[in-house]
Design a protein around this nucleic acid. Structure first.
Lengths: 186, 186
DNA sequence: GGAAAATTTGGTCGGTCTCACGATAAACAG
DNA sequence: CTGTTTATCGTGAGACCGACCAAATTTTCC
């Protein structure tokens, strides 16, 4: 049930790009990002290249180079990013829509495991496919402001144009809705 | 978000043990199980040994040997089995209860990814920790009977004692409750 | 044009996951 | 006791993943 490191890093990077874009500084160098998030640089490079190839990022070379978002965060679905990096969300291939594969069990129609994992698939999809990068960024910034945390990436005074673009005032789509009321370990 | 092959095979095996126990033939040889489910024999051996070491199975050696369930299926939680084989259910370690690990992100309290994955964790747990092996077996057998499928493992006429033990009539705990009404691919 | 800074490309390396071969030990049948 | 049947154990190949290092290429700035 794990998200790969590659997928984790990709999402963390995209969230950072969303945050810095919101703060008026969309361009980030790989070295900055790696330092801030504590990620291995060369591995992060591979991931950013993959995100670029998929149309999520653009890159600028040279002196003031770096990466930036190629699409508005509202158009970036978390679920689609996970699928790009880690493959289908479904725990087993025989309940996947995008990459269905017959499993080795003799009677797929009456497989108890398949029924269970179909529920898990739907549960995961209902979360990851509903949230966009903009949603995650918005919730994160609200939390940061509420706790009066100095906004990250305000450092690096490189071309400090305040340019506070009118933020997309969308419905705040509550995250973390049904936080576990039970003591079930996970 | 994947369940490992090891975890998949372990669950498939346990479900089969539950089914055959219900049918009055609790003991299965590794070779039978591998043939019926189409699993690699030696790999399955390792998995069954692990399940035995964890107290889920017993083994008999010699002529009429094999494996059988060591605990009533009502006491076997699907979530606990997955945790044993694949580790914590949580997609990333920093939202796990049983195996929490600080992640490399600088501010865990305000990490957007963490908030998302917390929801995913709860969603998975709410499914896998609610269902026991007995639930899965019961739903499977109902489906098999409804479609009039010849019950598996009725073959192998080895010591055919009908011994129809009084089945635990529990509440039927609907599986596959909210089947995806939407066309979201997964 | 030349230097600097960044992306791009290439190879390496240890670890884990699947899966397989071969040999050993226990239980049973004759 | 002997042989068959079964689980048990040791070993390791093959593939993939996470992470690292070094060089090559491209772009921009001075």
């Amino acid at each position: 049930m794990k998200l790969s490191k590659r997928g984790e890093y990709a999402l963390r990077a995209l969230i950072d790009f969303g945050l810095t874009q919101e703060l008026g500084r969309p361009l980030l160098r790989v070295s900055e990002l790696a330092a801030k998030e504590g990620l291995p640089i060369k591995f992060l490079e591979q991931i950013l290249m993959q995100l670029k190839a998929a149309g999520y990022l653009e890159s600028r070379r040279g002196k003031h180079g770096g990466y930036l978002l190629a699409r508005p965060p509202e158009n970036i679905s978390v679920g689609q990013v996970v699928r790009l990096i880690d493959g289908p969300l479904a725990p087993i291939a025989c309940v996947s829509q995008t990459a269905y594969e017959r499993c080795s069990c003799p009677d797929e129609e009456h497989c108890g495991l398949r029924m269970l994992m179909l529920d898990v698939r739907n549960a995961i999809s209902n979360i990851l496919d509903r949230f966009t990068l903009a949603d995650v960024v918005e919730v994160t910034m609200r939390k940061l402001r509420r706790d009066k945390v100095p906004l990250p990436f305000a450092l690096e005074p490189l071309m400090t144009q305040p340019s506070s673009r009118p933020k997309s005032s969308k419905r705040p789509k509550k995250i973390n809705g049904q936080t576990s009321t039970e003591k079930v370990p996970i």
